[in-house]
Design a protein around this nucleic acid. Structure first.
Lengths: 219, 219
DNA sequence: TAGATTGTTAATCGATTAACAATC
DNA sequence: TAGATTGTTAATCGATTAACAATC
């Protein structure tokens, strides 16, 4: 059922970054690169790079290094970017609209096929050539269109109910921008979270930690 | 110079999530909670919760658990949310606009004091009550206004140059939405990345890994 | 061939979990 | 007090780094 065995989360999280750096190298016309050179560019150890890549196969050649273009393509394949999963966006507010407009879905293995909102002012408007539909028509849409994934750009109090409806309609893969933990409620779903608030708070922590003197903390 | 000693990245990343759950508990009127109960709600081990919290202090009480409200306030303080760091937004496109409109900066320790873009169509327009300024006036603005942090919502090819300018103007804390690794080029800066493309590719990986049969992968 | 660099095993380091004495 | 639960130390687990034989 799984393509690769026991790939740890840290390894998976590094894959898109490898993909990015290899893409840049390829654009610059670089043909081959050693784990040593790449480690310097990326701020990792050469050992880690070799370990990571060897989870998926032996893409290098002793005495030579890694061929940039084919490794780039291999990682695309590992990430599954050669798929085209259909996705719908839930929520056409500021954030939803920006996600719809900003993302190159096709380059990341997805195609945006529907947008839903419950605000009558938004229903009927177009975003990136896609008509915003009434949230009430969600089930009907999913029954008519193969829907692989849903993108949550709605306020947290709306998420649970919509997730329930999607789950019953068979949509179980979620890109979650909402301030809500989907994974706690179901366990046969796949969730990738983008918690912007959490990220901003972590920045706040880092700044505070680097700048505060212990004397100030009790103030 | 640092408030806490040797706090590991995994612990820091969990703090906003603790903060969120404690906030919800407090809203529901819950007065106290044991690490055991919280672990069930959050899908962690009780041991980890106690270890994490004890990095910062002994907030619990034997035989009783943790007082929800005061722990919530403690975590806010640990995260530095009682600060108000001034931040400027670079890039008023779809994503920048959404970030400006969508985020509750004040609740996360920040205040948005300026927005910059190089597109003459955007300069002079208002976003959330803030006038979009010409990117050329960046240095002047920073010299007149204490600027603690910058938010990057510009295309990757623009980042390096703007980061240079900000760095020279003394702005060294960045919330980075761009597809570019700032941290590789400087080392006395603080960066928190939001790599939406990486996140979407990770979702693609997870879906592919769960659904592909090995036989299909070579196709 | 000789030099370079991989793939892979072994050693180290760090994070998570378990256990339990301290104590409310 | 007795029961519960923390704070903290010890044990385990997993991830990273180092080392080196295989080999291009």
């Amino acid at each position: 059922m799984h393509r690769y065995k026991n790939i740890s989360a840290p390894v998976i999280k590094r894959l898109p970054r490898y993909y990015r750096f290899l893409g840049e190298l390829h654009d610059k016309g670089v043909i081959r690169i050693s784990s040593r050179e790449l480690s310097v560019k990326m701020g990792l150890t050469a050992s880690q790079i070799r370990q990571d890549l060897n989870c998926f196969g032996g893409f290098g050649q002793q005495g030579y290094g890694y061929p940039v273009e084919s490794l780039y393509n291999e990682i695309a394949h590992i990430l599954g970017l050669d798929h085209t999963y259909s996705a719908i966006l839930i929520g056409a507010g500021n954030l939803g609209k920006a996600v719809a407009m900003h993302m190159s879905f096709e380059k990341r293995g997805f195609r945006l096929i529907g947008i839903f909102d419950n605000d009558s002012k938004k229903i009927g408007t177009e975003i990136r050539g896609i008509m915003v539909s009434d949230l009430d028509s969600l089930e009907h849409f999913c029954s008519q269109n193969k829907t692989d994934a849903a993108i949550f750009c709605v306020p947290k109090n709306a998420v649970h109910d919509i997730a329930d409806r999607l789950y019953r309609a068979g949509v179980k893969n979620y890109w979650n921008f909402s301030h809500y933990d989907l994974s706690v409620h179901y366990d046969d779903i796949i969730v990738e979270n983008v918690h912007l608030n959490d990220s901003l708070m972590i920045l706040c922590y880092k700044i505070s930690d680097a700048n505060d003197f212990p004397d100030n903390t009790s103030a």
